[in-house]
């Protein structure tokens, strides 16, 4: 009896303590569960404000006949339907994809070779490694202006040099191949060093003992490159390929300045990219709805392009995994 009363008397206090313990446990669990999200939230909040919202709003605009000063009528998917059957849009897609291939393939190969060379021990190592970044810190506009002058038909250095060999001056902006080439040179000039540094960083993280073991087994330097360096670089190569895809499909400043600010990219749209076409619709035709539809299509194309790249490079790199 007494014992039971005591017990009963004790109970509330105990219960309270137990309760406190339990809620502290819950807090701790919540802490474990949600804090990480809280910590990464600034990025997502910023992304929501400056990434997701504009994207969704662009989608909203794309569903309208949206003239900046005039009407804003809801038209549903009409803009998208028009984009899909618009030869000027597909021309821009073709140009963009073409310039992406012409620019990116040699660029990544060159970057790889450059990184491999920079990875050796040599004099002035840091200087050389920093040096490859120099084109990157030059403003795009400056690069584009200088290269546009080099590629000028009447007064350009390149035609002048070609003239020594008896070649007729090339009108670089007139042909598709010549304009693509000129623009790709600008892109590569700017980005090769950047990719080389990324490769170099990845190369330095490859364990040295792999090379030592290979050397002991009698593998040549070249063999080591193909069977050790390259497979170990695969994730990095996928990364650079995807970044290049995203960048390449948004190519804008170089072709715009190559055509001296011509949004149409050449007399027959020889080098108009998708972003230039979007720009032309927004700021030449002031058709914001249509321009928004174009930019959404570009987004989808980049998504698909990156995915294809990823899958392809995984497969090529094949067996290693």
């Amino acid at each position: 009896m007494t014992a039971s009363t005591r017990l009963r008397r004790v109970k509330p206090a105990l219960a309270g303590r137990l309760l406190a313990k339990r809620s502290a446990g819950r807090l701790a669990r919540w802490d474990m569960k949600f804090s990480p999200y809280l910590f990464v939230s600034p990025y997502f909040l910023l992304f929501a404000a400056f990434g997701a919202f504009p994207m969704l709003y662009t989608l909203w605009v794309a569903l309208h006949d949206w003239d900046l000063v005039g009407s804003r009528d809801f038209v549903g998917p009409a803009n998208f339907r028009m984009v899909l059957s618009d030869p000027q849009f597909w021309n821009a897609v073709w140009n963009t994809a073409g310039m992406f291939v012409v620019a990116t393939v040699p660029q990544l190969l060159l970057a790889l070779m450059l990184a491999n060379a920079l990875n050796r021990r040599m004099r002035g190592q840091t200087l050389l490694r920093m040096g490859v970044l120099a084109p990157m810190v030059t403003s795009v506009a400056a690069v584009a202006i200088v290269f546009s002058q080099l590629f000028s038909r009447d007064f350009g250095l390149i035609n002048y040099v070609l003239g020594w060999f008896g070649a007729d001056p090339i009108d670089w902006t007139a042909e598709r191949w010549s304009s693509w080439l000129a623009i790709s040179v600008m892109v590569d000039w700017r980005w090769t060093g950047y990719n080389a540094l990324i490769y170099l960083a990845a190369m330095q993280s490859i364990p040295k003992d792999l090379y030592e073991a290979a050397a002991i087994d009698g593998a040549s330097r070249r063999r080591q490159f193909w069977t050790i360096t390259l497979p170990m670089l695969r994730p990095t190569i996928i990364f650079t390929a995807i970044i290049s895809t995203i960048g390449g499909f948004q190519l804008f400043t170089e072709p715009l300045l190559f055509g001296n600010g011509d949004m149409a990219g050449g007399s027959l749209r020889q080098f108009q990219t998708v972003t230039m076409y979007m720009f032309e619709n927004a700021f030449g035709r002031f058709d914001y709805g249509y321009a928004s539809a174009v930019s959404w299509m570009l987004f989808l194309i980049i998504l698909v392009g990156s995915l294809l790249n990823f899958l392809w490079l995984r497969r090529v790199g094949g067996g290693a995994r």
Binding site: S139, A141, A142, I145, L256, L257, N260, G261, D262
Partner: peptide, 16 residues
């Protein structure tokens, strides 16, 4: 209409 402008040195400034 094309605004192409004249650009010599000013192109950069214009774009900026």
């Amino acid at each position: 209409p094309r605004g192409r402008a004249r650009r010599r040195v000013r192109l950069g400034a214009g774009i900026a």
